[in-house]
Design a protein around this nucleic acid. Structure first.
Lengths: 206, 206
DNA sequence: CATAAAATACCCGTTAGCAGGTATTTTATG
DNA sequence: CATAAAATACCTGCTAACGGGTATTTTATG
């Protein structure tokens, strides 16, 4: 039995090439290729594919939003995001959304096929995610030392990075509102950013 | 006799798909697919292709620079640029460089094949991929359309991106504090971010 | 030229963030 | 065990941001 695939990508040329790649492998059947979100949701429900391949870098619509839409539907399938670049922040978002795979377009076809089979076997394939995470763990200590931050302050920074308010952070970490404010104060004193955007740039580098 | 093609694109997945598309047409022979500029020039000289297909939207190197490099070589071939978006400013640059075609990746395979044949017949094909509504919009315009933002709102967003306060933005743009606040309000209403970090992520993507 | 969209400007009330403090408890660490 | 560092908690006051309005002028556009 072949794996039924739905491709969502407004770059028709890429979709058609990808279809041929999948077809050649002999294990996949491309049910349809769609170029916009309305068609995407409609085809998803009608065709009930086993696997959805969605391009993230679409100029006119957000891959993220489509993934959210698909997640709302009754039919459930594996979802793999195909992206031009490996963006760390995007990776986290897609992981949170429960996407089954994130593969960059720099991946050779055979590796893609192999990854898709892994996904169909229930694995979660985040190509470069694993490598980066390992690197990040070593970074954390250097990061701490470099900025004279304490463990708790890093906890708070990670919460801020998620976009949580002081109140929310307090709830999440089971702390008093005042305690979180104190930490924030100390962080700001230590890092002393000249503007909000500098601060958010810093958070991104974490 | 088949048309010998060299593909330059660091998105291997796309190159491989494109190769299959060309192969299926029966009229093209893909000599090689390369991922970086050095390989590009080397292969160009060694394989002397009839046609070069080059991706413009490469993250780490400029398609423009590669085209310039190829133009310097002894061997001459037709050069067609494949792009994600149709950007007017780039179009002019490529025209000046004597590129034989500029086709977006939203073009269906059959139209691409037809366009490539036109190019091989000596025609210059610059608008095959740009059908109906896609009216040569720049990145900024796509961005605008995508989010329903006005020109002024983008000005304000760029100021916010710099980390300026409302007061500072008002001074920089010679506007009233209240006007800037109104714009910010409208931007927030249109984009409706759930958190500050989402907002700053968005700014970064500008 | 009529009309809509965009850009400009002003007012009010609320809240989150932040800088200024002070102070206690817990945890390492020599 | 003594002491410093870290983590906890509370209070005050100020300001930027933001959402709710309203309203006028300028600019496109059919």
């Amino acid at each position: 039995m072949k794996i039924n695939v739905l491709i969502i990508d407004d770059h028709v040329l890429f979709s058609q090439g990808l279809s041929l790649i999948l077809k050649e492998s002999g294990k996949f059947k491309v049910l349809n290729q769609v170029q916009d979100s309305r068609e995407a949701v409609h085809n998803y429900c009608k065709l009930t594919p086993d696997l959805v391949l969605i391009d993230y870098n679409m100029p006119h619509l957000s891959g993220l939003d489509i993934v959210k839409e698909l997640a709302k539907q009754v039919h459930k399938s594996k979802i793999v995001v195909l992206s031009m670049y490996a963006e760390e922040s995007d990776l986290i978002k897609f992981k949170e959304l429960g996407v089954n795979g994130y593969i960059t377009k720099t991946t050779p076809a055979d590796l893609l096929i192999a990854s898709l089979h892994q996904v169909m076997d229930g694995e979660i394939v985040f190509e470069k995610g694993l490598q980066k995470k390992v690197v990040l763990k070593g970074k954390k200590d250097i990061f701490k030392l470099k900025n004279n931050l304490t463990n708790r302050e890093i906890d708070i920074l990670l919460e801020i990075k998620k976009g949580h308010t002081t109140q929310k952070i307090a709830e999440n970490l089971s702390l008093s509102f005042y305690t979180v404010e104190t930490h924030r104060k100390n962080i700001n004193r230590k890092l002393n950013f000249s503007s909000k955007s500098d601060f958010f740039d810093f958070l991104k580098s974490m």
